[in-house]
C-alpha cells in the first residue's frame, strides 16, 4: 500500500514538473525577408495557462543585431501576449540564427530559449569580393565571378570603379553568370578602388574591392 502511495506521489510531482505555466505557441520562428528589407520581426506568442502570475525577470538576445521586447512585465493567469524579436539585417547574407533567452520567476520552467531564423535572399554571389596585387607585380587582370542567386535572374551588370587607376571589363559567361576583369594601370604604388556592381533592374547595389598593396603579393 505504502509503495503505491509513494509511486502515486512521485507521479504527481513529475506531472507537476512537466506543466509549464507560460505556454509558448512556438519557440522557433523562421522568417523570409525580401532582399531589400532592413529588418525582420519575429512574434513569439504565449499564454499563461497556470493559476498564478508569471513575471519576466530578463530577456536577452544572442546578438547585438537583435532586440527583444516584452509587452508587459507580468502575465496574469489566463492572459496571452507575445515577445517580439527584431533582427536588424544590415549587410548580413544567408541564413541567420539568433536566440532570445527569456528568464521568468516560474519555478518549474524558468528559462525558455526562443529561436529566430532569418533566411536572407542573396541576389548576387560575388567571388571573390577582393582582388589585390603586390607592389611591382605584373599588372595583369584578375577576375571576379558574379552569378545570380537562387530565385533571381540578372540580364546585365553595370560595374564602375571609384578610381581611374583600375579598369574593369564585364563579360557575360551564360546562365546568369558574369566575369569582371579588373586591371590596375600600374603596380608601382599603393592604391585602391571600390567597384560598384549594379544589376539591371535591381534597387540593390553590391561592392567589390581592388587594391595594390605595398607588400609583395602572396595570393
Amino acid at each position: 500500500m505504502r509503495t503505491r502511495i509513494l509511486a502515486f506521489t512521485l507521479s504527481i510531482v513529475i506531472c507537476a514538473a512537466a506543466h509549464a505555466e507560460l505556454k509558448w505557441e512556438q519557440t522557433t520562428v523562421e522568417l523570409h525577408p525580401a532582399s531589400t528589407d532592413k529588418e525582420a520581426v519575429g512574434h513569439f506568442k504565449y499564454q499563461n495557462t497556470g493559476d498564478k502570475s508569471v513575471r519576466f525577470k530578463s530577456v536577452h538576445t544572442s546578438c547585438g543585431c537583435t532586440a527583444a521586447q516584452t509587452q508587459k512585465d507580468e502575465v496574469p493567469p489566463g492572459e496571452k501576449g507575445e515577445i517580439t524579436a527584431t533582427f536588424k539585417i544590415g549587410d548580413r547574407t544567408g541564413t541567420q540564427v539568433k536566440t532570445v533567452t527569456v528568464d521568468t520567476d516560474d519555478p518549474v520552467n524558468a528559462t525558455t530559449v526562443l529561436t529566430l531564423k532569418a533566411v536572407i535572399p542573396q541576389e548576387l554571389e560575388i567571388n571573390p569580393t577582393f582582388v589585390f596585387w603586390g607592389q611591382g607585380e605584373a599588372p595583369k587582370p584578375k577576375t571576379i565571378v558574379v552569378r545570380a542567386g537562387k530565385d533571381f535572374s540578372v540580364k546585365q551588370l553595370k560595374v564602375t570603379s571609384s578610381s581611374p587607376d583600375f579598369e574593369t571589363k564585364v563579360a557575360e559567361t551564360g546562365k546568369g553568370q558574369f566575369k569582371i576583369d579588373v586591371q590596375p594601370h600600374d603596380t608601382s604604388r599603393n592604391m585602391a578602388a571600390t567597384l560598384t556592381i549594379q544589376p539591371e533592374g535591381s534597387s540593390k547595389t553590391f561592392y567589390a574591392m581592388a587594391r595594390v598593396t605595398n607588400a609583395p603579393a602572396i595570393q
Binding site: 544590415g90 549587410d91 577582393f130 589585390f132 574591392m209
Partner: peptide
C-alpha cells in the same frame, strides 16, 4: 561588423597587408 559590412570593408582592406595575420573579436 555585419551591420555596415559594405561600408567598413574598404576601410579594413586599406589597413590590411598580406603579411599580417587578422585577429577578429566580438564581446
Amino acid at each position: 561588423n555585419e551591420d555596415r559590412w559594405n561600408e567598413l570593408l574598404p576601410q579594413f582592406l586599406a589597413a590590411w597587408s598580406p603579411e599580417k595575420s587578422i585577429v577578429v573579436y566580438c564581446s
